[in-house]
């Protein structure tokens, strides 16, 4: 029998929630391990191996030591998959890129002496693909389990994963939600990549853009809608800071 591809799961600066989504596959993990061997997955197992074909990486990159570790992972892996908002686009960790790393450290740790301690040697947050090439992206905060399954099966079959390039509105309309704008809220759904099944608006919470913007914040249509709903550019800029700070538009087209 052909040897099964070996998969390792790694994390950087993150909440490990996306990994938890994999763990939450529960008995379906048995299906997964019928065609791959999971050789490293800190959140769910104690074994570890440096011999793997596919690396699934969660989290964003904050420090030189992270970069070094990530490069190491890349050099081992034939395929690298960025998992979740932190890995695919920097996510919430990029909020702090509004300030210089020194300012942030001072604000958080005050006068503590951190000199020479590489754990605190932070630079501006980077997404995975700002350090190493990424083969596949699984978006979201957290990721959607069904999408994870579809990307993994696509990779296993040698297909291009089917990641939507249309906005959340498509899925939101299918769910027959009352539009968040109609309810007086401000939602990033119209300019955010779908694939989450519009989970937030479906649970009556406006979209925060965790799967990345597929339109620039300053395109005419966005301006038009802001004006109609009496919102300012500042409103959308602030809203986009949560997941999309510093991102002009979605750069991950595939």
């Amino acid at each position: 029998m052909k040897q099964k591809p070996r998969v390792a799961v790694f994390d950087f600066a993150d909440c490990e929630g996306c990994e938890l989504q994999i763990a939450n596959l529960e008995e379906e993990i048995l299906d997964l391990i019928s065609f791959v061997d999971i050789v490293s997955f800190r959140e769910v197992m104690k074994e570890h191996s440096d011999s793997y074909d596919i690396a699934i990486v969660e989290g964003s990159i904050m420090r030189p030591m992270d970069e070094e570790r990530l490069r190491g992972i890349r050099s081992h892996a034939k395929i690298l998959i960025a998992l979740g908002a932190c890995a695919t686009m920097g996510g919430v960790n990029k909020i702090r890129n509004q300030w210089m790393p020194e300012e942030v450290k001072k604000d958080v740790y005050g006068d503590a002496n951190l000199k020479g301690n590489e754990l605190f040697d932070v630079f501006q947050t980077k997404a995975i693909n700002e350090v190493v090439p990424v083969d596949y992206y699984i978006f979201g905060c957290p990721i959607d389990r069904d999408e994870f399954k579809s990307v993994i099966t696509a990779i296993a079959l040698g297909k291009k994963p089917d990641i939507p390039r249309y906005p959340v509105c498509v899925e939101c309309k299918k769910n027959e939600n009352i539009c968040q704008f109609e309810l007086g809220a401000f939602c990033l759904g119209p300019i955010t990549r779908a694939g989450c099944k519009a989970i937030c608006p479906t649970h009556n919470s406006p979209c925060e853009g965790c799967r990345g913007l597929i339109k620039k914040q300053d395109t005419e249509c966005v301006k038009e809608v802001l004006e109609r709903y009496k919102l300012s550019y500042e409103d959308i800029r602030r809203r986009c800071t949560m997941y999309n700070y510093g991102r002009k538009e979605c750069s991950y087209d595939e």
Partner: peptide
């Protein structure tokens, strides 16, 4: 020019 290309109209 101001179309969001969101497909809502067709859905």
């Amino acid at each position: 020019d101001v179309c969001m290309e969101c497909g809502s109209c067709t859905m």
